[in-house]
Design a protein around this nucleic acid. Structure first.
Lengths: 217, 217
DNA sequence: ACCTGAACACCGTTCAAGT
DNA sequence: ACCTGAACACCGTTCAAGT
């Protein structure tokens, strides 16, 4: 139904998919309007039929990735802390698959509908946990800050122009870097080098999230 | 002393200062090698005498800003939590003066000497607080994640191309944005709109940092 | 409505050359 | 050693035109 219209070889979704592929394969600076257009086989300015500018394409990538996180776990019947940890782990896993995207999440206000939905479900859980509304609101923000901050710092450690390395590899690379810390001037950092290498791991992610959750209620 | 050498009209510091000024006055995308060169009155490629590439200039900005944070408070005799809150507030205040720089802190590993120094002093405090070395190491990372994440999300809310607005103005702008949230579909978000508007405030920053600190020891 | 061609005002970086 | 001029291979975005 509806008139066919001229060509319609394109769509916002196709553009976002191409942009994300570019981001994953060749890193943030490869995500150019011209690069996206070339990948979908179209003239550069055709992109502007679907997005007002490049920044809008980047925001759409963020929205897509947030939306990929299912929120059903939050409504489950496990203890509330476990449910929050489960979504946080899901977000982490997905975002680390797109390391270049992590920093995008912190570059603009996340005010899209998917972000609001995530926030609202988080408020549900925290209310159920017994927090008064004001504390629940503050706590939900603290959680989002912590999860996104962890992921961004973790993603900053990986080279986005090559396929995402397994965690063990990231930790090993960091251990190597820490071996160079002079123990005379930074004794504690040098002594804790093994732990500091493991900053970029799920274990550290779980640990710090657990401590924050412990402080919240 | 020492031969004068040809010109020496430039230095790494001068370049970083110019880049930071550009960042503050006209936002992240105005920080170009050519823009910096123009501001210091030099040919674009002169920058490459002091930095291998643009990314190195950005890292130097991060290092400069970390270095501006005095660490004496950490060694004071107030209760340890208060000392950590004090440096965190200092970092926040300084970074919000350079909103475009906040996201740079999360874009690359912070492995410079100033970052190491900050980490080491944090470990001092946490050891003094009675944490075993492994926990202290994990805790210091959790704190850094939280502080930088908070600041980045807060800075994402301000337009970096105009002078940093006072906090009250940022909160008011956000309250206005939240007034549009449909209460039927996001009841909790709408009900807590006032608190959510205040996410971008020192009060929220103190609150969530306090909860994290409570969970750590 | 959707797409193209051509153009404008920019980029980062490299290279050979001047002092 | 430090800086310049000129060039290369790119950018994002706009405008007029075609279907």
């Amino acid at each position: 139904m509806g008139k066919p219209g001229p060509k319609r070889t394109l769509s916002g979704d196709v553009i976002v998919t191409a942009a994300l592929a570019l981001l994953d394969e060749r890193g943030a600076e490869a995500v150019s309007v011209r690069g996206i257009a070339a990948r979908v086989g179209v003239a550069p300015n055709a992109i502007y039929t679907y997005f007002p500018d490049k920044a809008a394409v980047l925001r759409a990538i963020v929205d897509r990735l947030i939306g990929e996180q299912g929120l059903e776990v939050l409504a489950g019947d496990r203890p509330w802390r476990e449910r929050i940890v489960a979504v946080a782990l899901g977000l982490r896993e997905n975002l680390l698959r797109h390391p270049g995207a992590a920093v995008l999440m912190m570059s603009a206000p996340m005010d899209g509908p998917r972000a609001l939905e995530l926030g609202e479900r988080l408020l549900d859980v925290l209310a159920e946990a017994g927090l008064p509304p004001d504390d629940a609101a503050r706590a939900s923000y603290a959680l989002i800050v912590h999860v996104l901050g962890s992921i961004a710092l973790e993603a900053a450690e990986v080279d986005p122009t090559k396929p995402a390395p397994p965690e063990a590899e990231r930790v090993a690379a960091r251990r190597l870097a820490f071996a160079a810390v002079p123990a005379e001037v930074f004794p504690r950092s040098a002594a804790a080098a093994d732990v500091m290498a493991a900053y970029v791991s799920e274990e550290q992610f779980r640990w710090s999230l657990g401590r924050l959750l412990g402080g919240l209620a």
